Amino acid sequence: MTNNILEVNNLSKSFQGNRILKDVSLTVHEGDIYGLLGKNGAGKSTTMKAILKLIKLDSGTIKLFDQYNIADTNAYLSDIGSLIEAPSFYPNLTAIENLKILQRLADVPQSNIEKVLTIVDLQNVPKKKLVKNYSLGMKQRLGIALALLKFPKLIILDEPTNGLDPKGVREIRELIASLPEKYGTTVLISSHILSEIEKIANRVAIINNGQIKYEGSLAELEKTSRLVIKTDNNSAAVRLLEQHQYLINKQNEDGFELNNIDRATIIQLNQLLVTHDIGVHELHVVKNSLEDMFLTMTEGAQ
């Protein structure tokens, strides 16, 4: 049986009369790398801040580790690490000095400091180098080290690759991908960079205008497909198919599409068109990608 690390149910939140979250629900399983995807302003950061009790909700419930309702306790926070927006440091201190402050506050072993510096590949940085002299990529890795210091059950990362060059993005991606297997840490990560999430996540949710439009595994998403058809008379072909109860998903002057049609139905559909003297010059199945799903869910949104 899969353990639920996080259960979010019907979250709603408004700021100054503007409804930011609209009945948001999602479930993160133990061992997931769970991608929360959406455009800027879609509600990703607000959802994460709600989980960490950084904002007060209007309604809804959040349950952690099959045990805690966050409205009743703060105890769950000891098992969560987070990097929300830009990491915060004391710039005139070293990495070790910054980590020591949190280590004492969190009451975790001092040996954790060297462990997390090694995990994020900062172990060879000169010990006296001040954080203000770190590159952006080094600061992001140090932010993840701070989030990992307690070796939490859940780590929440809000756009952790923002502003990084391709090398830095790859390094952070590889680091995040290693966390569940190597350290038993479940990951909730937000991003608007679909290609990065697609490489590491096993489950995703798409949020748009404060609403969850899709939640599921990437494996399930890859099973969905669309049938692209182009004929010598597309308008007649569409009319004919609709008369036979086929649902046309998308249509333009070049052709039209249907969703999730199996092989037997494709054969029947093709025979129907040919029997009615409609010439089919292109017919192929396209598997939906994460980008396809994202654009479908968010296109035209304000």
Rank of each mutant, 00 (worst) to 15 (best):
N208Q: 09
I172R: 00
E196K: 09
L194T: 04
S190F: 01
S195A: 14
I200V: 12
V204A: 03
A201C: 13
L175N: 03
A205M: 09
I189W: 01
T186R: 04
E171Y: 00
A177N: 12
I207A: 12
P180E: 09
R203G: 13
E196R: 10
H192P: 15
A205L: 12
H192N: 15
E198C: 08
T186I: 02
L175M: 06
S190M: 00
T186A: 11
E196V: 13
V187D: 01
S178C: 07
L194R: 04
T185N: 07
S190Q: 00
A205V: 08
I197G: 02
A205D: 15
R173H: 06
S178K: 08
P180Y: 09
I207V: 13
I207C: 08
V187Q: 08
E174M: 05
K199V: 00
N208R: 07
R173A: 04
I189H: 02
L188G: 07
E198R: 04
S190E: 05
T185L: 02
E181T: 12
N208A: 14
E171R: 02
T186L: 02
K199A: 06
E181L: 10
V204S: 05
I189V: 15
P180V: 12
G210F: 07
Y183P: 08
E181H: 07
V204L: 04
G184Q: 09
A177L: 11
Y183G: 07
I193E: 06
N208I: 06
A205K: 05
N202I: 09
A201Q: 01
N209K: 10
P180K: 06
S190N: 05
L188I: 04
V187K: 04
A177E: 14
E171H: 05
E171I: 00
I206E: 13
I197Q: 03
A205W: 11
I172K: 07
L194F: 07
R170P: 11
S191I: 11
V187I: 03
L188Q: 10
K182P: 07
E196T: 14
L175C: 08
T185E: 07
L188V: 13
N202K: 10
I200R: 02
S190T: 03
I189G: 00
R203W: 08
E181K: 10
E174Q: 03
E174W: 01
A201M: 06
I200T: 03
S195K: 13
I206A: 13
N208K: 08
E196M: 13
T185C: 12
E198F: 05
N202G: 11
K182Q: 10
L175Q: 08
Y183T: 06
E171L: 09
Y183C: 06
L175W: 01
E198K: 06
S178Y: 10
P180F: 11
N202A: 11
N209L: 12
L188C: 10
A177W: 05
V204I: 15
I207N: 06
R173C: 05
E198L: 03
N208W: 04
H192S: 13
P180N: 11
R170H: 15
I206W: 08
I193D: 00
S190H: 01
I193V: 15
K199P: 01
I176V: 15
S190R: 00
G184S: 14
A201P: 04
